[in-house]
Design a protein around this nucleic acid. Structure first.
Lengths: 244, 244
DNA sequence: AAGTGGTCTAGACCACCGC
DNA sequence: CGGTGGTCTAGACCACTTT
């Protein structure tokens, strides 16, 4: 039997099919890394021509939701953006090699959400959040100071976890422990002068400029999951982009 | 009679057709703003199915080379990226409105290319370049200090032009006077401390951080056209981006 | 009404992958 | 080898713009 397409019947079929398939990912019936049915199967399932199914799949690949591999199949893309730091900072160790910075959680506690945090995470003002203070280090030298906030309600299992068992990559932990998958994030960059406290932590002179990166991470369903603010030395900052 | 497709015959037709059409733009047989033949005409012209022509056109739209308008036709896109400053700085006048900064060319002269300029513009070390020093101001207050270098050989007509007749947008002037069309550009951002000279020009305290934007602009053919380095107050800097 | 791009169909054949 | 996605064809019909 043919399944129904979501959305307004006046919309193009490939758009309605794309929305229908997107929903499979959003509701986690299709999970990251998983293979989805072939385009012929999907076409038959929803009663459209293979070319139309193809167009829908192409759109979802464009959006970064799916990945296609010639001869193998179509898969739900596993988002991974912990390389994101490298887009902004030149981090290398003494040998000049690029490395993933080591990670040290300095502090982790429950608190009432500060007003900006509540606003960013779209929580009521009195909501509880998990607050973390984290350092990223290379060869033992602190390169980045991060503050991280999570809605306490959805991250109870994370709060219960032993801090020493948490590796440098948080998003996979969010997924496996709390079922929260980060699908995309918005970042905004500004420059500020190091306060004495940050200068001490990052071993810089006072009144050295810092790059501040605010990142709001969203799930597939568009809800905010995590807000973090990272500070690093502006001297290490370099960003490259193309425009047209 | 059917025209020949460019490129290796083992490549997909739509790729070869895309390259062939790209060449029409690169060689300026099709000029920015101009309408190009319809997909049916192109398909017949090159002996491919309309769907294949369509695929080639879609790719060129993706690349930003063409624009399609339903019911009207397909057009060579007119690149325009002087809004690029707004991606990095929040410039507004006393009334809080966004404005295109006024432009004042402080200096314009011929010189031997400094080594970095020669490298960026891919010129021999002894080549002559046009050097410009330019200020961008809002309500008479300098917001941005720019240094601009052009290959003297290709920009003789620009050098001859009266400086007072040059508006805030240089790229259209490059096009109309010298036939040099900027198709894309690469930018890289870093932070540095204001030297006394820049602090004075931009009316900032000394040891204030500046954002430095290096921009190398390329023509459709991939040759570098212009190199510029702009400096503005880091306090006004804000950059927003999405990752997934 | 004529011409354009947008959607959709129903195939064919090819290239790549894993068994 | 069978199954997958990638390319290509040759149409039909629709939606939009212009004359």
């Amino acid at each position: 039997m043919v399944s129904a397409l979501k959305g307004d019947a006046r919309l193009p079929r490939y758009q309605r099919l794309a929305e229908t398939l997107r929903d499979e990912v959003v509701t986690r019936r299709w999970r990251p890394g998983e293979q989805i049915p072939s385009e012929n199967v999907i076409a038959a399932q929803y009663g459209v021509a293979p070319g139309t199914a193809r167009q829908a799949l192409a759109r979802l690949v464009d959006e970064g939701l799916l990945e296609r591999q010639h001869g193998r199949g179509t898969f739900v893309r596993r988002p991974s953006f912990d390389q994101s730091l490298f887009r902004f900072f030149r981090f290398s160790n003494e040998a000049g090699e690029r490395v993933v910075p080591e990670s040290r959680i300095v502090q982790r506690e429950l608190m009432r959400a500060p007003s900006e945090v509540a606003r960013q995470l779209q929580l009521p003002g009195e909501a509880e959040v998990i607050f973390m203070n984290r350092l990223r280090l290379i060869d033992g030298v602190p390169m980045l100071a991060e503050q991280i906030w999570l809605p306490a309600e959805r991250f109870a299992a994370f709060m219960a976890m032993d801090a020493s068992e948490i590796g440098p990559l948080l998003y996979p932990v969010y997924d496996s422990l709390c079922g929260e998958v980060v699908a995309r994030a918005e970042e905004s960059l500004t420059v500020e002068m190091a306060t004495p406290a940050y200068a001490r932590v990052l071993r810089l002179e006072e009144h050295t400029p810092l790059i501040v990166i605010d990142r709001l991470a969203y799930g597939y369903d568009g809800r905010p999951i995590e807000w973090r603010r990272s500070r690093g030395p502006a001297a290490q900052f370099k960003y490259h982009t193309e425009i047209r």
